[in-house]
């Protein structure tokens, strides 16, 4: 199980990874990347699904339902918006080539 220090190791390595990924990014990509990272934390929907599938009362079902709804919105919306933004960079590249 991911107790104590194992969790801390995961957090530490993930934090460095995030810093490294963003560290050398040209400013034109800041907006798409913010949107892209916004999409990535849409993974929360998976946690909400777990919570909802294990719900044992009406309260938990209601909150879980809301959680899945919001999480799905985060993931789907984040994806579509990021994809649209990045599509523009792609078409410009082709014209240049």
């Amino acid at each position: 199980m991911l107790t104590g220090f194992v969790a801390l190791y995961i957090f530490m390595l993930a934090a460095f990874t995030g810093f490294e990924i963003i560290g050398r990014v040209p400013s034109i990509l800041h907006t798409p990347l913010m949107s892209g990272s916004n999409f990535v934390h849409g993974i929360v929907v998976v946690g909400a699904l777990f919570a909802l599938l294990n719900a044992t009362s009406i309260t938990e079902q209601v909150i879980g339902f809301l959680g899945v709804l919001l999480g799905a919105g985060n993931a789907a919306g984040g994806y579509v918006v990021t994809e649209r933004m990045l599509q523009m960079f792609k078409s410009s590249d082709k014209k240049k080539a």
Binding site: M1, L2, A7, I10, F11, A14, A15, F16, T17, G18, F19, I21, I22, G23, H30, L33, M34, S37, N38, V40, H41, I43, V44, V46, G47, F50
Partner: peptide, 19 residues
């Protein structure tokens, strides 16, 4: 106890902070 959420969340947490 879901490592995918831990990793994705923390990567975004630090990348977002830097951004």
């Amino acid at each position: 106890q879901n490592p995918a959420l831990m990793i994705a969340g923390m990567v975004v947490g630090s990348a977002g902070t830097l951004l």
